[in-house]
């Protein structure tokens, strides 16, 4: 009786994972479809090599719009990430200090951009930035993306700071390091895992963000998600599937990096002990 229950549970879990992963698992092979269809052709199911092709990937890299979108996404993403990472790391160190007044309030304020519905953020940002002359500019989008990216940096850096041993800074000072050197040579390397993880999350977030971009971007600032957005709503082309596959690949790479950083940190902790 109990075994049947266990079997049912396992089946349920497997189905749950299929549901969770189905969109990813289907879009990847379909992006290699030689035909402009959105389903598996018989040739694909028989694994005939001529049923597969890279034509949709070639489409991306031969299209001026997509190339500009890729360029824009990286440009906006890198600057937004830089801003978010610097501001977020400093703020996390400040927040971790019990002497900071109104700590709970400040941390709620800093986290608030990511718990506010993105459509509401986008509406507010669109009106305000247009009023102050930042509508349809790179700077406007970069500032908005830095604002929604910074909370991720604060969260991940705070998590690494929770284990940070402050006597190390005192040790550095007693060995003659000035505060800046102590921060740069002692504290930063130890919390760097959190900083890099936060930066990666902020980057993905900017890279995937579409609502703010739909409202704010002019023809010049169109990013990858913005091109996908109009592509999906106008005429769905398999090129979009190729782009989606590349985005999934990016996430997998980022998450593997984060995992590697994590295990690296655990090893560090072990050897320190």
């Amino acid at each position: 009786m109990w075994n049947i229950g266990k079997g049912v549970l396992t089946l349920f879990v497997v189905l749950g994972f299929i549901f969770l992963l189905a969109p990813l698992l289907v879009v990847v092979p379909l992006s290699f479809n030689a035909e402009p269809y959105f389903t598996f052709t018989e040739g694909m199911l028989r694994f005939e090599s001529e049923a597969y092709s890279l034509r949709w990937y070639r489409n991306i890299f031969e299209s001026e719009e997509w190339l500009r979108a890729i360029q824009n996404s990286f440009f906006i993403g890198i600057f937004a990430t830089f801003l978010a990472t610097v501001l977020g790391t400093l703020a996390a160190i400040g927040l971790n200090d019990p002497r900071l007044p109104f700590r709970k309030f400040v941390s709620a304020l800093i986290i608030s951009p990511i718990v506010t519905p993105i459509i509401v953020v986008a509406v507010g940002v669109y009106f305000f930035y247009t009023d102050i002359g930042l509508g349809q500019t790179y700077l406007g989008i970069i500032l908005a993306h830095a604002m929604i990216g910074a909370p991720y940096v604060v969260i991940t850096v705070s998590a690494t700071l929770a284990n940070f041993d402050y006597t190390l800074l005192r040790a550095a000072a007693s060995l003659g390091a000035n505060p800046w050197t102590a921060f740069r040579r002692v504290q930063l390397p130890i919390i760097s895992r959190g900083v890099i993880t936060g930066a990666l999350f902020a980057f993905i977030n900017s890279f995937d963000e579409v609502v703010i971009v739909v409202f704010m971007a002019g023809p010049k600032q169109r990013t990858i998600p913005r091109e996908m957005w109009s592509g999906i709503r106008e005429e769905l082309s398999p090129t979009i599937l190729a782009v989606a596959t590349l985005l999934i690949l990016l996430v997998v790479l980022v998450l593997i990096t984060v995992e590697v950083l994590k295990s690296f940190g655990e090893k560090n902790k072990l050897s320190a002990n």
Partner: peptide, 28 residues
Amino acid sequence: QDIKSRIGPIGLALPLVAFIVITFLMPL
């Protein structure tokens, strides 16, 4: 002497707080 104490936790948190106020709270 560590950098936190020199600038103080307020100085560290302030840039992001100001940034969020300008880029997020003021638009709202």
